[in-house]
Amino acid sequence: MFATEPVRVVAVSAGLSSPSSTRLLAERLAGAARERLLAEQDRPVEVRVIELRDLAVDIANHLVTGFPSAALDTAIKEVAEADGLIVVSPVFTASYSGLFKSFFDLVDNTALTGKPVVIAATGGTARHSLVLEHAMRPLFAYLRATVVPTSVYAASEDWGSSGDEYTDGLPSRIRRAGGELAAMITGGRAASGAPRTLGLDDEVVPFEQQLADLRLD
């Protein structure tokens, strides 16, 4: 009997404090993805959280010398070999942190091609939430990763909030993003209805018919 290879989910946290809300968000997203993966298939799931705070000096030395330490080399390889990736940065000056960017500058620019990725960020106020769309999503698009539809931003007031009639609470957004990551890892369609490539057997509905279906009786 052959051993079943585990699904590897790697979460990268660029939080600087300890304890860190950035690390907490990374862990909760990883937990949501793991829960969905275990529910949908019988392979074991391994979750690894990489704390960039612990690698800060190694990252700086690598940028200067071109040689990674053993710990940094292991972290880079784990990111490249992951089946699914979760990346979380605190917001600094309306963007991701320098530590976060420096780490991904060291990852080969083809290593993340096609890899499912959840992007997430933490900050003191909700007004910085667009960092996900104007900074993080373009970065991972450049790296040719496949970013899941749901990105997760956690402001200070989001922790413990159940949301309102207009906005889902943080736990709901975490579950949705984790589910989308799990679906992409297993080859399914993202839970939020992300577009997929049409196959030869898929029926193409004419645009005029789509419009007709939308008309009220």
Rank of each mutant, 00 (worst) to 15 (best):
S162W: 06
G179H: 04
V45I: 14
R176G: 03
D58K: 01
D158M: 05
S162G: 13
P68R: 06
A141K: 11
Y166T: 11
G98N: 13
L198F: 09
M184H: 05
A145I: 09
D201G: 05
N61H: 15
L24G: 13
F100T: 09
L55H: 03
T146A: 14
F207S: 09
R53C: 00
D202M: 01
E27A: 10
F140S: 08
P171I: 03
G114T: 03
A111W: 01
L214V: 08
E208I: 09
E180F: 08
K77P: 04
I50E: 01
R215E: 07
G15R: 04
S69C: 02
D201A: 12
L106H: 00
L211S: 07
M1R: 15
R28K: 05
A56E: 14
S20V: 02
R175C: 10
D168V: 08
A135L: 10
P195H: 12
T186I: 14
V87R: 04
L63S: 12
R28T: 01
A94W: 14
H62G: 07
G124E: 06
A39S: 15
A56S: 12
T110R: 11
Y166L: 14
E51N: 14
P19V: 02
T122R: 06
S162R: 12
R43I: 02
R137A: 15
